[in-house]
Every structure is written in C-alpha cells, then in structure tokens.
Computed example of a mutant assay.
Amino acid sequence: MEIVLAKRAGFCFGVKRATQMAFEAADKGGLTYTLGPIIHSPQVVQRLEELGVKVLKGLDGISEGTVIIRSHGVTSDELQEAVQKQLEIVDATCPFVKKAQEHVKSLSLAGYDLVVVGDADHPEVQGIVSFANGNVFVVGSGEEASTLPKMKKIGIVAQTTQSFENLQNVVLECLLKAGEIRVFNTICDATAVRQEEAKALAGQVNCMIVIGGYNSANTKRLAEVCKELQPKTYHIETAQDLDSAWFADVNRVGVTAGASTPKWLIDEVIERIKKLDNEKNG
C-alpha cells in the first residue's frame, strides 16, 4: 500500500513559532502559564504541562510568573490584565492574527462599523473582536451577512483560517449594506495552500487520513474539503484512532494534517498505517 504525505502537512509558521516560544519559556523554569491552550493540539499541551506549564482560563489569583499568549491570541482585556499584574508576557500570538487585531483597532478608530468573518465561538475571533471600540458583527457566511443592518461605513477582516470564497461572499453582501467598505484580506496563505494541496491529493487516493485535534477549526475544514472529493476520509487525532477496516481494498492512502499537528504525531500515524498494512498482508 502506497502512503502519500502532503507536502504542507503539520505545523504552520505561526504554530511552529508559538510552540517553540512555549518550550523555550518552559525550559527557563519558574511559574509558567498559558492563557488557554497554546495551540489546538491536546498532545502538545500535555507535553508542556509535563514541563510545568499550566493552562489557565483566566488570570484570577495569579500575581507572579510568566504568561504565554497562545497562537490564537487573547482579548485586549486579558492582555491588559497581564500588564497590570506585571507578569512577564511571552506573546506567541500568530503574526497574521496580530495583524487582524491591529486592522480591527485602526478601522474602529477611523469610524467604521466592523464585520469579522469567522466562527464567533473561536478564541481567535473572540480576541480579534475585543480590539474594536464601536459596533462589531461576527458572520460565518454570506447568508448571515445578508441579515446585517444598513451602515454608513463597514470595515471587514477575516479569521485567518477562513476560505477566500467565504470572505468574498460576505464582502458582496456588505456592498449592499453600506456606501463605503474597506476590506483587509487577513486569511493566512498557508491555510488556502494546505486546503488546495489536500484537495488535489484526495482526488488521487482511495482513502484519506486527516490528522489533528478534534478542537482544531482548520483540521475540521481540511477533513470537510477532502471528504467532498474522497468519501473515505477520516479525521483522527492520534495513531490509536486508526481502524484497520478503513484500509480494506485500499492501495493508495493520502495523509495530511492540520496546522497544529506536530511532526512526531504524523510520523506515528504513518508507522501505524504501515503496520496495519503488513498485518493485512500477513
């Protein structure tokens, strides 16, 4: 059985940077925390916890130590609280997310009502929204954007893992809502490239394995994109989730992984697939 690994499977630039910063902070010792999970990979979070890095939901009761800002970023209030408490801050916010936060802030100050394209429950979006001073709306699709009220000026940014097509649909609807709109394309290229690559691979194999945290938005989207072309697409978190039945009558398997998936997890999955294949062929 041939196993084909997508070229851009695994850590994107922002996640790689955040993870490196977190492990470097852990190596220094002392009280070290992350505000929320550093990335959407329970396995990486667990490794950091083993090194003494505790995951916090908030800063209540914390008066000293180092706080690492996760790759998705945090709200402006949380950041301000860390500053006021004089905690040492390691800001591992992805630079692309940081850019979206800055655009929201500047558009808001310039008198624009804000539209953020993304998932309202996602921590990245909650962080981006918090940098707005005036009205801000979160929409997940063009259909949702069609219900927005009329506004004078609309500023638009997107969650970094959104598809360009979705941003485009929202922009088209917003053109009907305001006399002036200003759009910043804050989608990370790595997301679009990864999805296109996964689509191409899904069309060339008999089975597709997508590795990544079940809480990872970009991994879920990768699995959806692949499933459209290859019905035998399976989203797994670790090698233990693989089922030998998936590979019956399969001679070519495609493997890709979300932006928060470490290389060692991908390697484990590939080794497990090889082992299952060897067992099948006796």
Rank of each mutant, 00 (worst) to 15 (best):
G58P: 04
G61P: 01
G61N: 01
I62L: 09
S63L: 15
V67T: 10
I68K: 02
I69C: 01
S71Y: 10
S71P: 14
S71Q: 12
G73A: 08
V74S: 01
V74K: 01
T75R: 09
S76M: 12
S76K: 07
D77L: 13
E78T: 04
E78G: 05
E78R: 06
Q80H: 15
A82V: 00
V83I: 11
Q84K: 05
Q86N: 08
Q86A: 09
L87N: 02
L87S: 03
E88G: 07
V90Q: 09
D91T: 07
A92Y: 04
A92H: 06
T93W: 11
C94I: 06
C94W: 05
P95H: 12
P95D: 09
F96S: 11
F96P: 12
V97Q: 01
A100E: 04
E102N: 12
H103I: 14
H103K: 15
K105A: 14
S106Y: 11
L107W: 14
L107A: 10
S108C: 07
A110F: 15
Y112F: 11
D113P: 04
L114F: 04
V115M: 10
V115F: 10
V116M: 01
V117R: 00
D119N: 08
A120I: 11
D121N: 14
D121T: 13
D121A: 15
P123G: 01
P123V: 00
Q126S: 05
Q126D: 03
V129I: 07
S130E: 11
F131M: 05
A132W: 06
N133L: 12
N133H: 14
G134I: 09
V136C: 06
V136L: 12
F137H: 12
V138R: 10
V138Q: 10
V138H: 05
V139M: 01
V139T: 03
S141M: 04
